[in-house]
Design a protein around this nucleic acid. Structure first.
Lengths: 366, 366
DNA sequence: GTGAAAGCGCTAACAC
DNA sequence: GTGTTAGCGCTTTCAC
């Protein structure tokens, strides 16, 4: 219809007011009389006018967008954090610009473009270590930076104590009487600073030492972060025969799934022949009845993003640095109590075409 | 240091040229002499200048960002598509602005802000049906729109034939001699237009009919999209005793996991007492040896985003509408052949501190 | 309260 | 080739 898109000027003209007034209305200023407010509002409505983001960004000097750097986004734990972040930002009216980082080159490239083009007002880093020199630069430009699942002095962050978590997991197995405890973890990814697995390994060693057990590096294995790889590694450990571990601490639930699968194929009974504990408390560990260390994944994203929102509002992030609590969730894979499916949460009813569980409560409300 | 941020004018002044020239350099115009190019470039370098996104956006009339509407982002299948989309956009220098949609209200809200504030140049919708009136509006504003895992006439999209997929899965079970085949799927989410599960159900019915089998609605159950819910529903089906299904088609692998868990708890041997097939071919189905229908998830994201890139370049999306192929992946949960862990892909070596699978090939290269 | 006008930092059309 | 200038659409003084 109209060749030229309608702008604030159009609205001002139509409403018979100045552009300043329209702008005030748009930004919810109280410096506008009841009457003009109404008139402008109805004109906006009638013309179906919406302000252009980039114009107001330029003028205001901010983008109302936050950049999110995510390490290997496909990992369920990372995903859960991301969801928390996105939801909070969304509610705050901020755009979530997501960057997937799978290697150091990508990290550098994305950081450059984000920082230098000032396309976002703030940066949230998930499970990623930002290189020192970048941090310095970000600081100099005074761009808010929040770390989720990572911690650095003087920087707002939400994190857990992976060392402690690894210790807790190992102590759980020790408390069950195990002495030959294996560890299966991720390859070190120093390029991305994903140190969770190695930190949990450190906790594993500490727990062993505290129990007076000499660590046996033949029981330690690392590989890519996949169930398949973990299964292969577990199988390799089983080859030790008599010297094989009676329990395995897998540094994540994804790995634990592979370990359990491998045990089944080798006809090792869980947990009698092999006890297993994972880490993260993913949905899969609950359904497969895998003992694990629970960490608040979604919450970490929510808290991290909340800090960002505060910072962008010129406030100070309340708890500047926040450590979330961990707790061991003992299940069948170590205790041997066959965990039942939590039917209590669900009410099965007769639906129009078969049985049905209606959503609500724990689930989405449609 | 400098109170005023450095702008293109600063650079121009410092380099002793006009802003136009600097702009040309920035945008890689060939209308610049070798000498000036060098001078401007070095000035930019020296001043550490980077153009401001929002300013160029306003001027150019585009944002170089793409909005991605994602239905219930946590679902692994959705995630995989999203990763494909983000990676392609990233490579094309486009920002990926992600919106998580969990209900109709959110869908409306996000669509409004995206469309009306023109904060993005294009929209990619993943596993989501955009309401008719919105489509009309998007069309009128001539904002490129690409559908991933969804299809609508006259719109560029990447999709699969879920009905056919459901048929294939059911036929697989029929070919194994099963006659009492159950179906476990998602609750209909007409608000978000997530019709995959219902379409697969339609295929299930078609396959039964083609085999001359009267559908038994007692063998059909629906619930929230979680393993737990599926386990509860499967347990309910087992209560039918003699009339219980000998095979179950779960409309996704996530549900299939729950079904298998429930079967194990009821001491039903897989696949002798109960055969199971899922859908999606997620990693979990491979490790748990679950038969499934493979669909190219990552690829759907890649292809969808590629179409968007084409559209934004003023080209026409090559295959306007693209249907991806499905194929049944028979595994132990229906065939009963104990699938082995694919060790061939991995080489276990002695690492510095225990065994190790080095990454590469199928895995990330660090 | 409200209008007018001066930017925000960049691009692009136009002169030279 | 290169400089100049007029916008892009909004926000924000600053008068009135």
């Amino acid at each position: 219809m109209t060749k030229r898109a309608i702008s604030i000027a159009t609205v001002a003209a139509e409403a018979g007011v100045g552009v300043g007034t329209v702008s005030r209305v748009l930004n919810g200023s109280d410096q506008v009389s009841e009457a003009t407010l109404k008139r402008v509002l109805s004109t906006i409505e009638r013309l179906d006018y919406r302000p252009l983001r980039s114009a107001s960004s330029l003028s205001k000097g901010r983008t109302d967008a936050v950049g999110i750097l995510v390490s290997v986004i496909t990992r369920p734990s990372v995903m859960a954090r991301l969801v928390g972040v996105i939801d909070v930002l969304s509610d705050a009216g901020l755009d979530a610009v997501v960057f997937n980082v799978e290697n150091r080159a990508q990290l550098d490239r994305h950081l450059s473009s984000i920082i230098d083009q000032r396309r976002v007002d703030g940066i949230i880093s998930i499970s990623l270590r930002i290189p020192k020199e970048r941090i310095a630069r970000i600081r100099k430009l005074s761009i808010p930076l929040v770390l989720v699942d990572n911690s650095l002095p003087n920087l707002p962050c939400v994190y857990i104590d992976d060392v402690e978590g690894g210790k807790m997991a190992t102590e759980h197995l020790l408390s069950l009487g195990h002495r030959r405890i294996g560890f299966i973890g991720d390859n070190a990814r120093s390029d991305l600073g994903m140190s969770a697995s190695e930190n949990r390994y450190a906790g594993y060693l500490m727990a062993l030492e505290a129990a007076g057990i000499e660590p046996d590096f033949d029981l330690v294995a690392r590989g890519p972060h996949s169930s398949e790889a973990a299964a292969v590694l577990a199988s390799a450990l089983f080859e030790l025969r008599k010297r094989r571990p009676t329990a395995i601490f897998a540094s994540s639930d994804t790995l634990a799934v592979g370990v359990i699968k491998a045990a089944q194929q080798h006809r090792h009974k869980i947990p009698d022949d092999l006890a297993v504990i994972g880490f993260d408390n993913l949905e899969v560990s609950s359904i497969l009845d895998i003992s694990t260390v629970n960490q608040p994944l979604l919450e970490s994203g929510i808290k991290g993003a909340s800090k960002m929102v505060s910072l962008l509002n010129g406030e100070i992030a309340k708890p500047h640095r926040e450590q979330l609590v961990l707790d061991v969730v003992p299940r069948g894979s170590s205790l041997g109590i066959q965990g039942n499916i939590p039917t209590k949460l669900y009410g099965v009813v007769e639906g129009p075409h078969g049985l049905q569980i209606l959503q609500g409560g724990e689930e989405l409300v449609s």
